[in-house]
Design a protein around this nucleic acid. Sequence first.
DNA 1: CCCGAATACTGATCTGGATCAAACAAACTT
DNA 2: AAGTTTGTTTGATCCAGATCAGTATTCGGG
Lengths: 249, 249
Amino acid sequence: MNNVLQMNSLRDSHRDPARAQVACSQCSLGELCLPKNLDKDDKIRFEQIVHRSRPIHAGEHIFRAGDEFRTVATVRTGCFKSYAIDQDGQEQVLGFHLPGEIIGLDAIHSGRHIANVVALDTSAICSLTFHSVSSMARSMPELQHELFRMMSQRISELETIAGDLSADERIALFLLSLSRRFARRGYSNKEFILAMSRRDIASYLRLATETVSRVLARFQQRGLVEVDRKQVVICDRDELRNIARTTLH
Amino acid sequence: MNNVLQMNSLRDSHRDPARAQVACSQCSLGELCLPKNLDKDDKIRFEQIVHRSRPIHAGEHIFRAGDEFRTVATVRTGCFKSYAIDQDGQEQVLGFHLPGEIIGLDAIHSGRHIANVVALDTSAICSLTFHSVSSMARSMPELQHELFRMMSQRISELETIAGDLSADERIALFLLSLSRRFARRGYSNKEFILAMSRRDIASYLRLATETVSRVLARFQQRGLVEVDRKQVVICDRDELRNIARTTLH
DNA sequence: CCCGAATACTGATCTGGATCAAACAAACTT
DNA sequence: AAGTTTGTTTGATCCAGATCAGTATTCGGG
């Protein structure tokens, strides 16, 4: 159980010039990171409790299921997936984490991490102890609300994916969700990279990998998307929204 | 959109002796309500922001999807279901709420209630503005943590139900979940009433009502449960756990 | 550059649970 | 109590997507 967070405490980063990184206020995440809407003083306090990581390589874990819950992490660059291992030893993908998103809040109630979280790409994170986040939240209404908001959003997302959806609906929702999240990050909402494998997508959406392949091929034939390996281009967003039966995204 | 909360503000309860009710510290919920782990002073402060409702009859709504998010509610007695209406006009059950459980936290991120929430039984609730809850949470670490904990728990629950489960697994998990929640409330964990219809159970578990009937009948034949109308007796919890493939519950 | 191992795609079957159809039982109406 | 409505159960079919089988493509390592 060798986790990056444990092996390489970032408390030391300011003492190690080679690891020095930009302050949150200059971070490429801009307003997307945790301290969104904080005023200047709050941002300075916030930065003091944030630890920036060295690069994390694809395949490296930052949390393991069962780990004591001490820290949460936000993604600066790259992509992570979280997954559980079920009774049959099968991997079950629970979610993907793009830049600006926070990881680990589902561990609060049990005091242990529920999921394994692994980098899909060369990535970087910021980590903070949950204790310091929640204690700061008590004097920063905006931060407290941001935490509530993120957990509430995750609940809504799960209520959607838990619904009774066809394979087409699931794939359309998945593509639109990624598009929206990349757009929020400042990337194109038309063209993006699937950092995760077909197998991961299938597991996340509760489909067979074969079904993912087939639906993507069908969408391409119908001119809705162009898919080449991991590259995706959204060609007909409106029709994807129709299929997903949602006006959201 | 006539909601009980709006029609009958409980701010007035202390002025209306007919509606006076016991203080939280004497409430039948005991330690299960929101102020769990609060000390005496905090409990007194807490009680000042809680509004107790008159009885709510089966079929009455306490929230409607789209309502502005101002208040949350905790169940004192009875049972509620929350549901959404999908694009086809079909009702989709999102969850059931038993005594001691809190309703409405999934509305935070959008500022509007996502779900319709309706009483299944004659019920009673306590309601509080989210603003007063979160502002109090800032001076009560235990309360803030309790809120985080509850949202985190809901995330875990949804991660389970969103999983790729067979009909048998879903029903077994459902029965065990109810059993655990009734037990926590001080009721029997062997024998309880299903306040919700077969149709509601089916919608919640993403099954057809016919499948719910058939699985319950099969479980009864195998001696796992006795089901008579809305009355349920758990006969073989271990085998139910096996079917649910979980050591939890 | 080639080779072996993943990963992705495509076609042929199979199946769990949905859907359709009907009988049945309980809960209201009058 | 008889009739009406609503909810539940049982039986017969059907289908979306899983599974199985085989091929094609990509990628990492020498």
